[in-house]
Design a protein around this nucleic acid. Sequence first.
DNA 1: GATTTTACCGAAAACGTTTTCGATTATGTA
DNA 2: TACATAATCGAAAACGTTTTCGGTAAAATC
Lengths: 340, 340
Amino acid sequence: MKEVTLKEIALELGISITTVSKALKNYTDVSPKTKAAVLKLAEELNYKPNSFAVNLRTKESKTIGLIIPEIVHHFFSNIVNAIIEKAEKKGYLVIILQSNESEELEKKQIDLLISKRVDGILMSLSNNTKNLDHLRKVIEHDIPLVLFDKISKLLDCSKVVIDDRSAGYDATEHLIKSGCKKIAHIRGPLNPQNSIDRFLGYKKALKDYNLPFDNSLIFTCEKVSFEEGYNFAKKIYTEHKDVDGIFAITDLVGIGVVAYFNEVGIKIPEQIAIIGFSNWFMSSVISPSLSTIDQPGFEMGKSALKLLLKEIKAHKKGKEFKFKTIVLPTHVIKRNSTFN
Amino acid sequence: MKEVTLKEIALELGISITTVSKALKNYTDVSPKTKAAVLKLAEELNYKPNSFAVNLRTKESKTIGLIIPEIVHHFFSNIVNAIIEKAEKKGYLVIILQSNESEELEKKQIDLLISKRVDGILMSLSNNTKNLDHLRKVIEHDIPLVLFDKISKLLDCSKVVIDDRSAGYDATEHLIKSGCKKIAHIRGPLNPQNSIDRFLGYKKALKDYNLPFDNSLIFTCEKVSFEEGYNFAKKIYTEHKDVDGIFAITDLVGIGVVAYFNEVGIKIPEQIAIIGFSNWFMSSVISPSLSTIDQPGFEMGKSALKLLLKEIKAHKKGKEFKFKTIVLPTHVIKRNSTFN
DNA sequence: GATTTTACCGAAAACGTTTTCGATTATGTA
DNA sequence: TACATAATCGAAAACGTTTTCGGTAAAATC
């Protein structure tokens, strides 16, 4: 099936390629008559501009790159959902890549996106990313970049985040107000800012409510998995019988915790209260349902994309663009794993 | 930041663009000496071919399109996961679009992908797609197309599926062997082949085991949601007290069912046994855990992509390609919502 | 009637690559 | 020495579009 080009329309109509192109783009210097003729024939022949040629000529691909740690995650798939939907409406397509929490892969994928010449990059850092040179490369290449959720404060670009510190504070405070006196925290990996901030929020809440901070009540996930939640719960139960509250870095971990206590017949929240983080759908249907912090994935994706498109637009016009950091609000969702 | 081109390398080295290009592509008609010089300088200048130009010249984008009903679904995000990972390894990038179960959107997105000139399209049909003209258009455009999971038998292309009929049979049979005498089926929408086939499998199993088929025990989801499962469970409980088994079209619906019976204190599986479909992670952590049919999303994505790449390759060489249909095996996963 | 303005059109360059085909030089053979 | 062969290179076309700039003819102005 031969694709129809400007040339063919021009030939058929006995006019130049230039005029055809202009007619289709509604230039003022082509008469209404020829304009109409071109439009009509283009419609008939079902002309579609060759995007390869357009890309080359205009130097833009109307495509943006998206790198996330992994897509099989309720939070991230929600973000992806928002981004591709919004992007499409604005005439952009989205290329998605997963870093699988590997700094090396992340580097490779940045290179890929640069060489594909995407118009902009949206990204959430991998947990293990320490060196940021590949991201600086993006900025040096003059490719608009917006970071979301897992960001680095060291990078000079726009960002969309929640206030993990205050959210961690809220979660802990909720446990305290729920009557807990000795609260353990199953935290995320050591590197990412997220888990650091949530941990800091936890610490601050303890302090504000005059509860002692005990480092032996801090448990550090590597994978942030169900199994880790389950195992740490077991550890807490056997080694710290008097712990009466657990703040888990994420719902998946929290659900592991719930599963363990259900199994050994410990009553939630009577004997131990639990709060998670992120508000996965799952948390609302397990029993007891898991209190959590809502993390507005869809909103985050939307804001990040909006910011990126603005920057792309400014960039195209050669205008200065001032980086912004958007902090999205979160709140505690009270369910049956805590008293309220 | 100016991008370096073949021209600049040629200029610097005092040779022609042609030779530079050939050197980089390891043509035999360029001397080892110049080849080395070009390679060296290209490395130094960090030359990256302009993919827009390459696309235009080679008429391929090394990009494939992927359309799914919605990404926020454990099954689909798993498929996406497999596809983008495998694709990247083979040098392809993936553009993802969601139909949101709308035929109209699906059409628009097909048009988008065609006009973007992707090298191939991977797709799972929306539940509401009845007219297939947009898919025929893909085939007419000579763009390799592979359908997976939600397919149409009317379309002449490669497909990757599970045998929903026999899987539905297995699910029902498992309930029967679990001791159920009166089994309700909460089925999917009327249109998609999947839910038809699972329903047919259910019917066949009843017949084979001499259980009467009762149309009033069939409930039809529209959204295939948690709420529908919950509400149909309520309906079943109030209107058909003697139903002792439920086969739900998908785990999410099954979890709704479980939630309702938990709420009203009906014992699962003693008073009523429940089986879902798809094996979402969630099903393993709720209580009681939900028996289900595993639906190998990752495998499905992998197979579909493999098939597509083969077809793209054949297509590029102008070779004939014989469409294949791959049927992936499924099996019953026995958990605590059924006796085993 | 002469001049300016307006309306309309097209030639051509450019984007950066790939590839064909012919040209040139060096090497080998008789 | 004369010729054939091999090795190495480059000119040029092509992919299809966008946009600049200049040109012509018609309309408007004086």
